[in-house]
Design a protein around this nucleic acid. Structure first.
Lengths: 333, 333
DNA sequence: CTGTTAGCGCGTTCAG
DNA sequence: CTGAACGCGCTAACAG
């Protein structure tokens, strides 16, 4: 059974300080005698020592933990992001506390509250609404904060997001070119900043093609779900009175719903329809249609987010910067 | 800025005990005078109070945190499992500490060590090898432990796994029936208990069809990856000297590799091939082929795992039980 | 080179 | 009804 420092001190007959120096690898520095050192090390080798983080946190007023709050861990993007973050944390001896909010601001607020009460040293959050600053304003020791994926305008925290405008522009250009201007954007959660940027990329590409009424090429619904995708596709089918030529989905969930609807409506997914979507998945390879998709760089986002956290935790000034991570455009078939 | 109990006591002129009773909602019970109570409550309403979990943990020797160690958060199964667990934890005021080990026993050991040092009250783990008991054997306060997804024979902890044998049997029966006995199992990580059960289900189904040499119908490779899937399919194609009739994958990663290989080899995925796989994904709907898949019930597993944890944490006897959660067989097209 | 000590904030016990 | 005091295990300042 692992011992506490005091127990080791008592058992070996030395003081806590001496034991601490040995255990902390500072024996050299404080010129602990070889004999003393050997005795302590032997005892530790036999019985083990286990740092009590609660006591350490209490004393140091820091937890060596970081919180991660995402809307949906079931979403592969957030899962990979969380995983990458956890790796960075482990590398620095930090633990990661996670919370998944189901896009519910209520749950989100409680989760953040809970993490802060736990005294996390850092917080990475992909908020479902504009984050409420009151958390930190009134707070003993304010943790480092980084907003990811969803940087609302005039963000007060450093943020790291994908290059949504540019990647959307590139994908939309290609989509419109290949479909001769016949493409519709099936869009869920249009109020999210990331989606807004994607919309703007689409609009820009429309402009380049001299499509004036791009707004009419966008079908919107508030919640991001398979069901929304189905309803949007339903609308699209009704509108174009025939097999749609090309469409662009704001997320994989919307894509799922849209394809499902195509399949039930036509019995199969018409091979002529050109598919484009944000967020990518390996399985997209196996749809026979031509498919364009944009893959976000979760590892890159995590790396930058963590770097920003680390910077803040080391007390450097909170530079309110906004970082944009490029995406990859993938085209299949 | 939220206050500590001592600060509130000092500011209101009462003692910590009195303040604690009021804050703890025990005012009635200890007959705190209405005036006192009002004063304290007013002060708290104005300045806030924030429990210091580090101090609480130090005193109570318990952290109100549970750890979750999985091989790969990027895997949708583990992501959903983790998410569901987190929900249960939140409901009981616990936080979830997560770690993803990339199937590396080294990382896993360090992650567990780290979580235990953090004093987690419970630990949910999907181990990559048979868990090493020495963690807990020699330990001050042993946390509650539940093994999920991968219960090795003679497991010493309670475990919760999917009904791998039965679901495999059902899927294999159907697969063999539809393919007239012409099906091959592309199997990665055959040493995992879950995979072993799936293999046995396949063998049983072969037996029912009076296929004696089921072993020759299984192609194995140790690591679960897209690359393995490709190599296994390569072998299969070479062996059957033509388009395979039907195959069964041990995981989605293997399926991805296998399909990829089919596609590069034949230019497209032959429509006649019958596909079956463990673990399911919505996108499987959009492959034109007939597809069988087994979907695990992550929510069910999480619920039972958490129930077992809770049971142990409440001091009830550690009944070394093994729970099996049914899966759903999905067939498409 | 080694030892002593004072908190960190909370929960609990005992004493009025 | 209210207050005082101890200790959880660790860190760090100070004292030899």
């Amino acid at each position: 059974m692992p011992k506490t420092i005091e127990e080791i001190a008592a058992a070996t007959g030395y003081s806590v300080t001496t034991v601490r120096f040995v255990i902390g690898g500072q024996a050299e520095r404080y010129r602990i005698s070889a004999a003393t050192r050997r005795k302590v090390e032997e005892y530790v080798a036999r019985h083990g020592y286990e740092l009590n983080h609660a006591a350490r946190s209490l004393k140091l007023q820091r937890s060596e933990a970081v919180g991660c709050v995402v809307p949906d861990l079931g979403n592969a993007f957030f899962a990979r992001l969380t995983e990458a973050l956890e790796g960075h944390c482990r590398g620095r001896g930090l633990v990661l506390l996670t919370a998944s909010t189901h896009e519910d601001p209520e749950i989100e607020a409680r989760a953040v509250e809970s993490l802060l009460a736990r005294g996390v040293d850092g917080l990475v959050i992909a908020p479902c609404r504009r984050p409420d600053l009151t958390w930190l304003a009134r707070r003993r020791r304010r943790p480092a904060v980084v907003v990811v994926d969803r940087a609302f305008p005039q963000e007060v925290y450093p943020s790291v997001v994908s290059d949504n405008f540019d990647s959307s522009l590139r994908m939309s250009r290609q989509l419109l070119r290949e479909s001769e201007g016949q493409a519709v954007f099936l869009c869920a959660q249009p109020e999210l900043p990331s989606i807004q940027h994607r919309l703007r990329g689409f609009a820009e590409a429309c402009g380049e093609m001299e499509i004036s009424d791009w707004e009419s090429r966008v079908l919107r619904l508030t919640d991001d779900s398979v069901e929304s995708g189905g309803r949007l596709m339903q609308t699209l089918i009704a509108r174009c009175a025939g097999v749609p030529r090309a469409f662009l989905c704001s997320s994989l969930l919307v894509l799922e719903g849209a394809l499902e609807k195509l399949k039930t409506h036509y019995g199969t997914i018409p091979g002529t329809v050109l598919i484009a979507t944000f967020d990518s998945h390996a399985m997209l390879d196996f749809i026979p249609n031509r498919v364009l998709s944009v893959r976000q760089d979760e590892a890159g986002i995590a790396a930058r987010a963590f770097a920003s956290l680390a910077e803040q935790m080391e007390g450097r000034s909170i530079s309110i910067e906004h970082q944009v991570v490029p995406c990859q455009l993938i085209s299949r078939n």
